[in-house]
Write a protein that binds this DNA or RNA. Structure first.
Lengths: 254, 254
DNA sequence: AACATGGCGATTGTACACAATGCTTAGTGG
DNA sequence: CCACTAAGCATTGTGTACAATCGCCATGTT
């Protein structure tokens, strides 16, 4: 009955470096990770009571976490109808990528100017972690760490509003990648991350921006949102029904 | 002392805009306006219970509104210590303006491509409202409407993440203007808004972007955050003590 | 006299009870 | 057999009681 995963005390600290380990942050981080690692498929309903039981907290906490996730765009909050994991449409994905191009360019330029040696070292560490995850076959963690790399880069740009915006964009991007990435292709080559760090360390702004733009190109060239949007949209809409099946191209004859 | 401004219960409840008329939004909008119109000075404490009594709702609703305001950067939420009206530092103001330059440029380019005739008409209407407010001497409403103009422009750009980011930036900008604007200078010349609309209507992207950038220049040239940041910072910190006084330049002899 | 410490009041944080809403399904009439 | 209606159920929305925490102030000590 009261089966819950320990009343939330251990706190593996796996999530972000969030200053305080408040319950909110724990619940938020766990749901967030679960979504990015596709243990929660797009469209899945997130019942407040069920989550509360799982995490051993009341609906109040769950609700706050869901609200935060909704603000970042990875959860959709439907009034009186509960929350579901977001299913970004192709159009939404395009908008996110457009915004990211914009922001990443600015972040790169600023990071070249302001990144400290310590931050550059941290970035290199993150690329290592990312590579390890992929070599371990942990795709979910890889996607998440790849996103955290871009977030760390934003912090080096030293502009609070941009960091906040980037957090939201990276979250949504990760969800989009998890949803749309085609096949087995490695989705975010960490080599590009390394080259980027090198350019930043050499304070070569032009090179860094070029690398970043190519990086953006590579990311969305690996996704399926080019033309066959219809089938992908269907997949998104009905993903909560299909457990593991992934219709390749047929428009789904219901 | 149950003095409250009508218990807010009237709430049409008619099937009309299902989400727009919720209590949350009403409370949010009222506090937001009060802050922008400087009826609530930076640093003012926002007690949940007091606000709940004023608006005739429970702390639950107030808390949500404050949370939303905090996410937009106009309210600071201190754990266990309540919420206060944000007091953006000069550095924070600079960061906001830098981010706005970035976003406004992109929004302008996109609006030139995508703005419909209807949207352009709405923009013109907003400029009229803005001018009316200033001619009425309603500075607070003017600042708010000026911000809403820029937000409307973002909507014409048809990019959801950018709209959301712009909303946050505009909110913070309005607060900064209310806090730092020097003297009586009209703060956001609606003429520039009109010219901008003209350029957009003519689909002249280059002109529109230039106008927007000049507009940005004008806005922050009217603020006091250039050099004498020390005194302004003091003003920000102690603004909850000074009722209406506005020290022009002297470093405030307390 | 100044600083440290402990109690007190006030305010926020959390949980829970109840109300309201939407979905589902069973039942009835065409 | 299908469509429509209505009632039941499950889930979310809101208000409120209680617990935890913080700041303030008085008191005692150095």
């Amino acid at each position: 009955m009261n089966e819950q995963l320990q009343p939330l005390k251990k706190q593996p600290r796996a999530g972000k470096a969030g200053r305080s380990g408040t319950q909110d942050d724990i619940v938020y981080a766990h749901i967030f990770e679960a979504i990015l690692e596709q243990r929660l498929a797009p469209g899945t309903k997130l019942s407040e009571e069920a989550l509360g039981e799982i995490f051993g907290v009341s609906r109040t906490i769950i609700r706050r976490a869901l609200s935060r996730l909704a603000h970042e765009g990875v959860v959709l909050l439907r009034p009186n109808r509960g929350a579901v994991v977001a299913s970004p449409s192709v159009e939404e994905a395009r908008q996110v990528f457009m915004a990211r191009r914009l922001v990443e360019r600015a972040i790169t330029e600023l990071a070249v100017q302001h990144a400290t040696a310590e931050q550059i070292a941290e970035l290199r560490q993150m690329v290592n972690d990312e590579r390890d995850s992929f070599s371990r076959g942990d795709r979910g963690a890889g996607i998440r760490l790849s996103g955290e790399f871009h977030l760390k880069l934003a912090e080096a740009a030293k502009n609070a509003p941009l960091i906040s915006f980037q957090r939201s964009l990276v979250s949504q991007t990760s969800l989009i990648i998890a949803q749309y990435e085609s096949g087995n292709r490695s989705h975010c080559s960490y080599d590009e991350h390394t080259q980027l760090i090198d350019a930043i360390e050499k304070r070569d702004g032009e090179l860094a921006v070029n690398l970043m733009m190519h990086h953006m190109d590579h990311i969305d060239s690996k996704l399926n949102l080019d033309e066959d949007s219809a089938s992908d949209d269907l997949h998104a809409v009905f993903s909560h029904l299909l457990q593991t099946k992934k219709p390749g191209r047929s428009p789904a004859k219901i």
